[in-house]
């Protein structure tokens, strides 16, 4: 078991108002799975993804990654967990406009500080080739289309070969055709390279491709199915 979430709860406090975002969440993700959280806006998909990705903290319960409970980790330790284990793909791509495509993709490896620049360059070229962006390495993100930018984000998330890639509505900002090609790319990487994906979506096309689907409503898992 790669990831196991047990009895996870999360409540937001705004002044005297309390909002329960996640209620007794239990789920599991196996290595190599292509798992999706589906549900309407405000259902808690992104909050759940953020808690799993250590970007936010749950209030109670546990999140086990390879058997290690992330809920007990300190802030600095969580940064290391993110650096070593997770790749993120965001709805708005979140690329750095001042950096070239190659510089954006290499960033996780630079932060890891484990490889030489030559090794990093080689990996970046291979990864850009995989996502169909060979020859774009010296361009800036704003010179690319939305679909191409999301492909760069996928490449950036994949470059360090993380245990788990967390994608928050990766097709939401793309037209259906472009969105489909991005999901197709992720699926290919999942099937061919065994990359584990966990994403939130309310796109039916994405849901169809998921090997496991959790339906979330009002912060609770209402149904799950496995293909």
């Amino acid at each position: 078991m790669l990831l196991e979430v047990k009895s996870l709860n999360k409540t937001y406090h705004t002044g005297i108002v309390e909002f329960t975002a996640l209620k007794n969440i239990n789920l599991s993700v196996e290595k190599g799975e292509f798992t999706a959280f589906a549900g309407p806006s405000g259902s808690g998909k992104t909050t759940l993804l953020n808690c799993i990705g250590c970007l936010d903290r749950g209030e109670s319960g546990s999140i086990l990654l390879d058997g290690v409970d992330l809920m007990t980790k300190k802030t600095v330790e969580l940064a290391h967990v993110r650096k070593e284990n997770f790749g993120f793909i965001f709805q708005t791509y979140n690329l750095f406009p001042v950096l070239t495509i190659a510089e954006n993709v290499e960033m996780p490896l630079k932060l890891l500080q484990k490889e030489s620049q030559e090794e990093i360059n080689e990996k970046v070229m291979k990864m850009l080739s995989k996502v169909g962006l060979s020859g774009y390495e010296n361009r800036r993100p704003l010179e690319l289309s939305g679909g191409q930018q999301q492909r760069v984000a996928v490449a950036r998330a994949l470059i360090k070969k993380p245990k788990l890639i967390l994608a928050d509505e990766p097709t939401a900002n793309l037209d259906s055709k472009t969105g489909e090609s991005v999901v197709e790319l992720m699926k290919e990487l999942n099937v061919n390279e065994g990359v584990t994906f966990l994403f939130s979506t309310h796109d039916s096309m994405v849901m169809k491709r998921a090997s496991k689907l959790y339906e979330i409503h009002d912060g609770q898992i209402k149904a799950s199915r496995k293909k």
């Binding site: 990705g53 802030t75 600095v76 940064a79 650096k83 993120f88 708005t92 979140n94 750095f96 960033m107």
Partner: peptide, 14 residues
């Protein structure tokens, strides 16, 4: 702010 969030998400320490 969003880029700071992205850097932190990628594991850059505070």
């Amino acid at each position: 702010r969003r880029e700071i969030g992205t850097l932190k998400a990628m594991g850059m320490l505070d």
